[in-house]
Amino acid sequence: MITKDARRLRVGILGCGPIAQFAHLDACVKARNADLYAICDAAPDLLARMAATYEPTRTFADYDAMLADPDVEAVIIAVSDAYHVPMAMRALEAGKHVLCEKPIGTSVAEGEALRDAVNRSGRSLQVGHMKRFDPGLEAARDFVRDEMGELLALKAWYCDSTHRYTNTDAVQPLPVTSKLARKPSGNPKADLAQYFMLAHGSHLVDTARFLCGEITEVRARLSTRFGAYCWFVETSFANGTLGHLDLTVAVRMDWHEGFQLYGEHGSILAKTYNPWFYRSSDVEIFSEKDATYRRPLGADGHFFRRQLEGFAEAVLDGAPMRGADVEDGLASIRAMVAIAQSVRSGDSVRLADVTGAV
């Protein structure tokens, strides 16, 4: 049984497409400290179907009308990447808190403009890097923070699988779609390197930053063969840690994601599962002080619900934001732009120097 808190954040979701259906609608229904107050979509048939299924208090066909509702306290932006920044900025200007799907934007200029809008608004903005709410990764981060001492090296990989849809189609409901859905101009998959970096590389970069802190410089190579894309990225962190990031789409094997992290007082080995399995990462933490391993169970693997609850705690209770904030989102954009520029030039690229788009 789901037990709800007495005071709950009233949330409006923009967009009723697949990511909302697979993640955010369910998260709002299940979150202990948030409610699905409103949904908004330009497609009337899709809006009606989701309203009948999830029974929000209000439905809107017009985004500005939802933002004008004083009872909407926060908005989840669950639409295409091209709409993230403008829709988030309109919500902030209307005085709403924002939880926005990743990536927060597609260019450094967009990220900087959104950061400035957040600072002007006085409202909270959290980026949907839900892997920060994976209990296994949280346990790893806690060990890094509290016991690991100086970090030496990180090896992290995010390898999508040719069999991912065979797996996910078996566990996900068929998404409800509409011919009236509003889509950005152009084909987001026209440039697959950019598309894969934004969709998958953003997760890999944020996980690396979550564990090891600020990335200062990258040197990247890209190989494309038989329809597959593979980035190897040498990574320098501000704390002196060396990194190697592997982004491959798609490997001819099962989903392959995880990391190894070596430090002064221990090491961590992690295996991460396809997020739609809602399964916490398997994490083995070795502590040098007593030469023992421990492996957190992490039974609660609903990352999307957990990220919404963390967001609501920050808004309602003034708790520190546990998720990625707008500065984290901007740093991810800078890292992805730097990787793309390094691939083109063959040189190392400092994140502080980059401009332009991914």
Results as ranks from 00 to 15, higher is better:
Met197Leu: 15
Pro70Thr: 04
Asp142Pro: 00
Ala324Ile: 05
Val98His: 08
Glu214Lys: 15
Tyr37Gln: 10
Ala270Asp: 01
Arg32Leu: 00
Arg295Ile: 15
Ser185Pro: 00
Leu261Cys: 05
Arg32Ile: 01
Arg90Pro: 03
Tyr63Arg: 11
Asp64His: 08
Glu93Phe: 02
Gln194Val: 13
Ser342Arg: 06
Asp146Ile: 00
Gly17Leu: 02
Thr162Lys: 11
Thr166Met: 07
Met197Gln: 12
Cys230Gly: 03
Arg350Gly: 15
Lys189Ile: 07
Lys131Trp: 13
Ala312Thr: 04
Leu9Ala: 10
Tyr83Ala: 15
Val29Phe: 01
Met321Arg: 13
Thr57Ala: 15
Asp41Pro: 03
Met89Cys: 13
Gly136Ala: 06
Leu154Lys: 08
Glu101Val: 06
Cys40Glu: 03
Cys100Pro: 00
Asp353Gly: 01
Glu257Asn: 13
Ser223Asp: 12
Arg10Met: 14
Tyr293Met: 14
Arg8Glu: 11
Leu211Thr: 00
Ala331Tyr: 10
His265Phe: 12
Pro296Val: 09
Leu151Asn: 03
Met148Thr: 04
Ser267Asp: 10
Phe286Gly: 09
Phe286Asn: 12
Met66Ile: 04
Phe286Trp: 14
Arg219Ala: 15
Ser161Thr: 09
Leu261Tyr: 06
Asp35Met: 07
Arg49Gln: 10
Trp231Thr: 01
Gly240Val: 12
Leu247Ser: 01
Val144His: 05
Gly213Tyr: 07
Ile104Gln: 14
Cys28Arg: 03
Gly263Lys: 02
Ala220His: 04
Arg49Gly: 00
Glu284Asp: 14
